[in-house]
Design a binder for these strands. Structure first.
Length: 422
RNA sequence: GCGACCAUGGCGAAGUGGUUAACGCACCGGAUUGUGGCUCCGGCAUUCGUGGGUUCGAUUCCCACUGGUCGCCCCA
């Protein structure tokens, strides 16, 4: 075998696609109910958009982007996340001039250059929503509620919301100072990457997995102690709404998101999964400065991104039954050349009438055709031989009961309608 | 970028330094000529990831490479 998919990518084969269709359908339906409208943006954007939007100290920008120059020598990047592109479109098309809040959702592939492992790929898929224009904590809660309802609609069990506030840039700056102050005496004991982060983004040290760093971080000050009245009040309100919505959440003051644009609310959806990495199935938060950063007006926003690949992984691990409809109404079996010829027309008639039907294209004998019909789970087999054809009749056999009756060829649509429509 | 493990037919999976590389599933064909699901029979690897080496001889031993899986970092 000479060609393979590029590392970190995978084909979604027909059987799998059924699951994806179903998941997408749930997303669409939930969004419809919450009045979020789909937006489709390009899979690549100017590199600068992500550098500005996502943040140049983030891992995404520092080491994970698929960046290339096109023939016009423009630097482009395969989108590593969905928000930046949506915000760009929102600004570019001056959607802020329309009715607010603007509520959008997207579904599609994202790209990050990383070593693949369980639940992590170089091309992965996200379903995300973004809403612009509202500072009401109720909409933060709605965003979280939509995500939860989506996950529940899939039948995913044991999903928890972890929530935190990352306050405002000003408060965070003060908090950073305190963190640096706290961590500096331990500097030599911290994990190497934690040391590197100390002055650039000390909050990232908080969720380190290095044992010693963890111990040290356990004693670090909490951002919750630095909140001003407004931030604390906002956070309280969001939690109140979540209580009202009966959404199970835990406050995790160590929760740090990997993107720079968040303000106030930050949250993650965590599934009950064995693979440690992949248990975070999505995350999001509020990003009040982002629209302006991208060149738009001052405009608050909230959203989330959910990892569909991980969700499907979780569905499989939990052995969730996926409702798949792939029934075959009628398989047309023919005997002889004339019948075979006629079957082409018959298939067309049946399909126009709305039935799902199939026939043999491999010159199989009757037995082979019957086997195929059975394998493809046909409900009925229409058996057409030379004699029947001459008399204008056809045999209809129900595979489930084994019963067979001869009817007039002209009556086949009515016959199937009666038997199948339920 | 670092580490661990793995690499046999479409899939799953045994196996041995030496004439024909088990088995299961799937697929194809057959079991009196125009009828499925069960059963039975038959077919289905002439590079056992690639390239080197050790050896009289390697799929089985060694090395490199590639790929996969999982973990670290980080994230969805």
């Amino acid at each position: 075998m000479s060609y393979r998919v590029p590392r970190g990518t995978f084909d979604i084969l027909p059987e799998e696609v059924k699951i994806w269709h179903w998941v997408e359908k749930q997303a669409q339906e939930i969004c419809r109910r919450y009045q979020y409208q789909e937006i489709r943006t390009p899979m690549f954007e100017h590199t600068e958009l992500f550098v500005r939007g996502v943040g140049d100290t983030t891992d995404i920008v520092e080491k994970e982007m698929y960046t290339f120059n096109d023939r016009g020598n423009r630097s482009l990047t395969l989108r590593p996340e969905g928000t930046a592109g949506v915000v760009r479109a929102f600004v570019e098309h001056k959607m802020y001039a329309g009715p607010l809040p603007t509520k959008l959702y997207y579904f599609g592939p994202m790209f990050r250059y990383e070593r693949p492992q369980a639940g992590r790929y170089r091309q992965f898929h996200q379903f995300g929503i973004e809403t612009f224009g509202s500072q009401d904590p109720a909409i933060d809660a709605e965003v979280i509620a939509l995500g939860m309802q989506f996950l529940e609609s899939l039948g995913l069990k044991g999903v928890k919301v972890e929530i935190n506030t990352v306050a405002t840039p000003e408060i965070r700056a003060r908090y950073f100072d305190k963190l640096i102050e706290y961590f500096t005496p331990f500097k030599e004991e911290l994990a190497k990457d934690a040391q590197n982060r100390l002055y650039r983004n000390p909050m990232r040290i908080l969720d380190s997995k290095d044992p010693r760093t963890k111990e040290i971080a356990a004693g670090a000050p909490s951002i919750l102690d630095f909140l001003d009245e407004e931030c604390a009040g906002y956070f309280e309100k969001v939690k109140e709404y979540l209580d009202l919505l009966e959404i199970p959440y835990v406050v995790n003051d160590r929760l740090v998101r990997g993107l720079d644009y968040y303000t106030h609310t930050a949250f993650e959806f965590v599934a009950d999964l064995s693979g440690a990495q992949a248990s975070t199935v999505g995350g999001g938060g509020r990003y009040n400065g982002l629209v302006q950063e991208i060149g738009g007006p001052e405009m608050p926003g909230v959203g989330f991104g959910l990892g569909i690949d991980r969700i499907i992984l979780a569905l499989k691990e939990q052995k969730v039954d996926i409702p798949v409809q792939d029934q075959l109404d009628c398989y047309v079996v023919t005997i002889g050349d004339k019948a075979k010829l006629y079957s082409v027309k018959l298939l067309k008639t049946l399909r126009e009438a709305g039935f799902v039907c199939e026939r043999d294209y491999l010159d199989r004998k009757v037995k082979g055709q019957m086997k195929a019909a059975d394998r493809e789970k046909a409900r009925f087999v229409a058996i057409l031989g030379e004699e029947e054809l001459e008399q204008g009749n056809i045999n209809m056999k129900c595979l489930e009961t084994g019963e067979q009756e001869q009817i007039s060829l002209d009556a086949i649509v009515d016959y199937l309608s009666n038997k199948i429509q339920p």
